[in-house]
């Protein structure tokens, strides 16, 4: 004999609920359904039809269970939708393009033919895009489900000066996603490897950097993460933050340059691969210089950016005080 419909309905509903809630909801729902069926039967409906009517009216058990447990029925609600969409657009503009560039360059060094280079780099860019979509959405879906309301309650004082760069939650998440990706890239390079020839994977960064230099790099990234959070908590740039930012950038720059100059940054296999593909000693030197310069430019830009933002905050504060003084 099959289980009666109401039993099946109740089982389908409570299976979504926590054990305590199950114990509460099960007997109550049981009584409510029985009452409703009884009332319909008393009005002359036959028993089976009455059961069906009552359960149909109650609707999808999953929806009923969700409203019992106050569960969110959307992935990302209106509270976070705009932030999610804004951040996703920003990252989708940057990350896949950056990955495309890096992978194309790596493949070029690895001496793939044109088809491989185009195919490989486009594939990697698409994968990176999917990763961005997934991780950003995951972060916001978790935010949506946590009660972490702190920091997004809005008040008038938060209205930014029109030109002032307000380091907000978006910047924080952007920094965290970027730094997280960086850690992933470093680890990915060491373990599965970006460049694969046959079964052999060739790390770009030298495995000899383990453990100390590599831990140093991860440590610097960790400090950057800490800094991003500190910046978010402080809400505004100030001289201390600009100094910390400068120190971190200089640290990162020193890490790259000292290893680059000593020739310890890239793995031998990676360099051999480049030599195999007719990169002469001279062009090695040129590439190293260009690489070092690029890192330098990025670090200097980051340092200046911090100070410019600090200056702007100071300027807008002064602008706020001036009219008050003349009154």
């Amino acid at each position: 004999m099959t289980t009666p419909l109401p039993e099946r309905y109740i089982a389908a509903t409570v299976k979504y609920l926590s054990p305590e809630l199950q114990a509460e909801v099960r007997p109550e729902l049981h009584a409510s359904i029985a009452d409703a069926v009884e009332a319909q039967v008393a009005q002359g409906e036959d028993y089976e039809t009455a059961e069906r009517n009552v359960l149909t009216e109650l609707g999808d058990p999953a929806v009923l269970a969700a409203s019992y447990s106050d569960r969110t029925l959307q992935l990302i609600g209106p509270r976070y939708y705009l932030s999610w969409w804004c951040l996703l657009k920003r990252l989708l503009l940057i990350v896949p393009a950056a990955v495309l560039g890096v992978v194309a360059f790596a493949q070029l060094l690895a001496g793939g033919d044109l088809g491989d280079i185009i195919g490989g780099s486009i594939g990697a860019a698409v994968t990176a895009g999917l990763h961005v979509c997934f991780w950003v959405t995951l972060v916001f879906a978790i935010l949506e489900r946590s009660d972490a309301d702190t920091g997004i309650t809005w008040d008038v004082d938060q209205l930014p000066e029109p030109r002032q760069q307000d380091p907000g939650r978006l910047d924080l998440i952007a920094s965290l996603v970027f730094l997280g990706l960086m850690i992933l890239v470093v680890l990915w390079d060491q373990i599965p490897g970006f460049i694969r020839i046959g079964d052999q994977s060739i790390p770009i960064l030298s495995p000899a950097l383990w453990p100390w230099a590599m831990l140093g790099l991860l440590g610097i990234i960790g400090l950057e993460i800490g800094f991003a959070i500190l910046l978010y908590v402080k809400r505004q740039w100030n001289a201390t933050l600009a100094i910390i930012n400068t120190v971190l950038s200089v640290l990162f720059f020193s890490w790259v340059i000292s290893l680059l100059v000593r020739g310890e940054l890239f793995s031998e296999m990676f360099l051999e691969l480049a030599v195999d593909n007719a990169v002469s000693g001279d062009s090695f030197y040129t590439i190293a210089v260009i690489f070092g310069l690029s890192v330098g430019i990025i670090c200097v830009w980051d340092i200046i950016d911090g100070w410019v933002k600090t200056y702007r905050v100071g300027a807008s504060d002064a602008a706020e005080q001036q009219p008050a003084a003349t009154q």
Binding site: E24, E28, L29, S32, A36, E57, S67, Y68, D70
Partner: peptide, 12 residues
């Protein structure tokens, strides 16, 4: 009122 709004409402 629908039954499926009332019952969860009572619990809340």
């Amino acid at each position: 009122t629908e039954a499926n709004t009332l019952y969860p409402l009572l619990r809340r």
